[in-house]
Lab assay of single mutants.
Amino acid sequence: TEEFVRLWREAVRHNQTLHWNGTDFIPGDEWAEEFARREEEKL
């Protein structure tokens, strides 16, 4: 979602874990980066 992408970019900028829907998205984590890339492509 647009909100997820916005929060993810913020988390990456501050190198912080994003807690989203009970899942931890960690900047630099391969799975999280791939998920975020797919979400961005949907926008």
Rank of each mutant, 00 (worst) to 15 (best):
E10I: 08
A36N: 02
E33K: 06
W31I: 07
G22N: 11
F25Y: 15
E39C: 15
T17V: 15
H14I: 12
K42M: 08
F35L: 05
E39W: 13
E10C: 10
N15V: 03
T17H: 07
L43V: 08
W8Q: 00
H14N: 15
Q16L: 13
D29C: 12
E3G: 07
R38E: 06
W20F: 11
D29S: 10
R6N: 09
A36K: 02
G28E: 02
E30F: 12
F4E: 02
D29G: 03
L43E: 05
I26E: 09
E41P: 02
W8M: 00
H19I: 08
D24P: 07
V12I: 11
F35M: 08
T17A: 11
G28W: 03
A36S: 04
E34D: 13
F35Y: 15
E40K: 07
D24H: 08
L43A: 07
E3I: 10
N15T: 04
G28L: 03
K42A: 10
Q16M: 14
V5L: 15
F4Y: 03
F35K: 03
K42F: 08
E33T: 07
E34I: 08
G22Q: 05
F4T: 00
W31S: 06
P27E: 02
W8V: 01
R38K: 13
F4S: 01
G28M: 02
F35G: 00
F4R: 00
G22S: 07
E41Q: 13
E40M: 15
Q16S: 12
A11L: 02
T17R: 06
E10P: 00
G22W: 04
F25K: 01
R9L: 14
H19W: 07
G28R: 02
G22E: 06
G28D: 02
A32D: 02
F25Q: 00
P27C: 00
R13H: 11
N15L: 07
E2K: 11
E33F: 03
E10N: 07
T1H: 10
V5S: 04
E10R: 05
F35P: 00
A11G: 01
E10T: 03
W20G: 00
I26Y: 09
G28A: 03
F4W: 08
L18S: 00
E39H: 10
F4K: 00
R37S: 07
E10L: 08
N21I: 05
G28N: 04
E39Q: 15
E33P: 01
F25A: 01
E3S: 08
E33R: 04
E30T: 14
F35T: 03
E41I: 11
W31A: 09
